[in-house]
């Protein structure tokens, strides 16, 4: 192990981003500019700046090591750049990594979509079932089989179907999906919007016309399920990031 290059356990402050101070050596900056051109389009400014700073630190350390080995400053910079690799070669490596990221992101979006669908389809089915229970109770009341004391039960079930069911599904989507949980949840719920309205419109022994039922479901789904589901997915995603960050801190300690 290179003990002198290990991070010191004491006297270290941890930061999320470095200060992007250009190198005193213009050749290093020109070189970094060339390398960074290869991933300019694909990464946010903050990440690019951090990567550039990281590579700059590496190059400066290599220059210092080369000077220690007896090179002049000029030679040390040339050798450090050579050891780091041609800018085109490093740029190609970044492009390969970028392609890998895009593929992984596509796969992760697909996986998130599957997770959301797997969680929301049963939730929707349960909501329809609960609404059917409510409908049956109302029919029973109007036929005189049930007492008006069942009204609070109807309200509780209706609230559960309208407000509570999208919450666990959204939270779980956020926690399990690798990213883009809110977007994926929104897409999934949009996909389920119409089928839910159709299923609700043609439910057995409905007291409303199919058009009325479909309209009510479209409205309720749009007003409650989609915003509540997306917000829950957002919270789930946030929790996931927080726990990941906590894990990272523990590992680094």
């Amino acid at each position: 192990m290179l003990e002198n290059h290990q991070p010191e356990p004491q006297g270290i402050s941890k930061r999320s981003l470095p200060s992007d101070i250009p190198s005193l050596e213009p050749r290093i900056e020109v070189y970094l500019e060339e390398v960074c051109a290869s991933f300019r389009a694909g990464l946010p400014e903050e990440t690019r700046s951090a990567l550039r700073a990281e590579m700059r630190v590496h190059l400066e350390e290599r220059v210092a090591a080369n000077v220690e080995l007896g090179d002049t400053r000029e030679e040390a910079v040339s050798r450090a750049l050579e050891q780091f690799g041609e800018s085109k070669q490093v740029g190609r490596a970044w492009q390969r990594e970028r392609r890998g990221t895009l593929l992984a992101r596509g796969a992760s979006a697909k996986l998130s979509g599957r997770i959301a669908l797997l969680l929301y389809v049963p939730s929707c089915a349960l909501a329809l079932f609960l609404l059917q229970v409510v409908n049956t109770i109302i029919l029973g009341m109007s036929a005189g089989y049930m007492s008006p004391q069942t009204v609070p039960t109807i309200e509780a079930i209706s609230y559960m179907a309208a407000f509570l069911l999208p919450v666990p599904a959204g939270l779980l989507t956020g926690l399990l999906a690798q990213g883009r949980a809110v977007r994926t949840t929104f897409r999934t719920l949009c996909l389920l919007w119409l089928p839910m309205a159709v299923c609700y419109a043609f439910r057995p022994s409905s007291t409303q016309s199919p058009l009325q039922s479909a309209g009510a479901m479209l409205l309720a789904f749009g007003l409650f399920w989609i915003p509540i589901g997306c917000a829950s997915a957002g919270i789930g995603g946030w929790l996931r990031k927080k726990t990941t960050h906590l894990r990272q801190r523990l590992v680094l300690r």
């Binding site: 991070p7 010191e8 006297g11 270290i12 402050s13 941890k14 930061r15 999320s16 981003l17 470095p18 200060s19 951090a50 700073a53 990281e54 630190v57 990272q248 590992v251 680094l252």
Partner: peptide
């Protein structure tokens, strides 16, 4: 996992 750390000499490194 990577994290920027400032060392005693003021140099920042991603560890």
């Amino acid at each position: 996992t990577g994290e920027w750390q400032r060392e005693g000499g003021g140099r920042e490194r991603r560890v």
